[in-house]
Write a protein that binds this DNA or RNA. Structure first.
Lengths: 159, 159
DNA sequence: GGAGGGGTACTCGGATAAGAGCTGTCCGAGTATCAATGG
DNA sequence: CCATTGATACTCGGACAGCTCTTATCCGAGTACCCCTCC
C-alpha cells in the first residue's frame, strides 16, 4: 500500500512548469530530474488526460499548465496520476456469510466504511488546500529565487 | 494505490472479537464472513505480530483481543496489517540531476514531501480517533443489539 | 473411585505458488520549423 | 526579394515486456482436551 512513485515526479514537474514561460518537452523534464524519460512521459500523459497540462506537438512543443498554478491543487495531480478510486473500498462484508444482513436492511453505510471514508476525506481536504503555486513559493524561499531561472537557462542551453 | 483488502477483514474481525467472551479461531471468523480461511489466517497473524490480539493454541484455542476495545484504534489495525511505512516516500528528487541541490543545503524537508506528510498525518489522526469499541456500538445501534448474540450462538453451534 | 499417560483433534505459524498492478521501454502518428526553389 | 512547397527533425501518444507486491493456498509445529488404563 504505497503511493505510486510517479506522483512525486508529476508534482515536481508541475512546480517547474509553473515557473517556465514556454512549453517544456518531457525529455528535458526527465533530464533535469535524472529519471527515466519514457516513464515520465507516461505520467505527463496522465496529467494531460486529467486536463492539468496541455500538450503542444511539433518542433518547439512540450507541456504547459492549462490553469494558473494557484488553481491547481496537489489533489488534482494525485487524482490525475493515481485515478480517483478511493483508498478503501467497502466490499459489504456484513451482507455475506450465514448471518449476513439482508441488503434491504443496509440503509445506513457500514460504520467501518464510514470511518475509513471520513479519514480519507481528511486526507483529500488537506491535499486540496495546497496548490502548485504555494509549493513554488516555498521552493523559491528555501532553494533561492534564482533556482528557477537557472532551470530555465538550462532548458534553453539544453544538453 | 489501493488499501489492502485484508484491512477491511481485520477490522470486522476485531469488532466481532470485542463482543465475544472466549477465544475465536480464524476458521470460524472466515466462515462467518464467507471469506478465504487461509488468507484471513494471514491477516490474523499480522494482528498477532502487532500485539493487538493474543493467540491461544490447542483444542479450544483462537484469538482474543489483548486490550479493551476502546483502547484499540482503527489506525492500530491498519498499521498492523499494512505496516507503518508511509504512503508517500520522498526520493529526494531535488538532489538529483545536473541542477540538483547539494545534500548539505537540504536542511529543511522538501516542500512537496512536507505537504504530503501533513495530509497523511491528517488521515492517521482521523483513524486514531475511532476505536473498535466505537464501531461495535455503532453496529449495535444500526444492526440491532441482538446481532452479536446471534454470532456468539453461531460460533457455539458451529457448522 | 482417582490419578497418570497416551492418543487425538484442533489450533496457530510460516513457507510456498498464482495473479494484478506498478515500473520501465519501445516505436508509430502528427506538427512546426527550416531550407530550397520558382516566380 | 518574396511566396510556396517539400523535407526534416522534433514532439506527443499509445502499445509492449519485466518486476514487485498483493492475493490465495498448503503443510508442519505445538497444545489442550479426552479416553483408556492402572493403582
Amino acid at each position: 500500500m504505497k503511493l505510486s512513485g510517479g506522483v512525486e515526479w508529476a508534482i515536481h514537474c508541475c512546480v517547474v512548469l509553473s515557473k517556465m514561460d514556454g512549453p517544456v518537452p518531457a525529455g528535458k523534464l526527465a533530464g533535469l530530474h535524472d529519471v527515466s524519460s519514457s516513464y515520465l512521459a507516461k505520467q505527463m500523459q496522465a496529467l494531460s488526460r486529467g486536463g492539468l497540462v496541455r500538450s503542444l506537438q511539433g518542433h518547439a512543443g512540450g507541456y504547459v499548465l492549462t490553469r494558473p498554478a494557484d488553481e491547481i491543487s496537489i489533489l488534482d495531480v494525485v487524482f490525475a496520476v493515481e485515478g480517483k478510486q478511493p483508498l478503501f473500498v467497502c466490499t459489504e462484508i456484513r451482507q455475506r456469510g450465514p448471518l449476513g444482513t439482508p441488503p434491504e436492511e443496509c440503509l445506513a453505510p457500514c460504520p467501518i466504511a464510514k470511518a475509513m471514508m471520513t479519514a480519507e476525506a481528511a486526507w483529500r481536504d488537506s491535499l486540496s488546500t495546497i496548490s502548485i503555486g504555494d509549493l513554488a513559493r516555498q521552493v523559491s524561499s528555501t532553494s533561492g529565487p534564482e533556482a528557477f531561472q537557472s532551470i530555465q537557462e538550462w532548458f534553453s542551453g539544453a544538453l
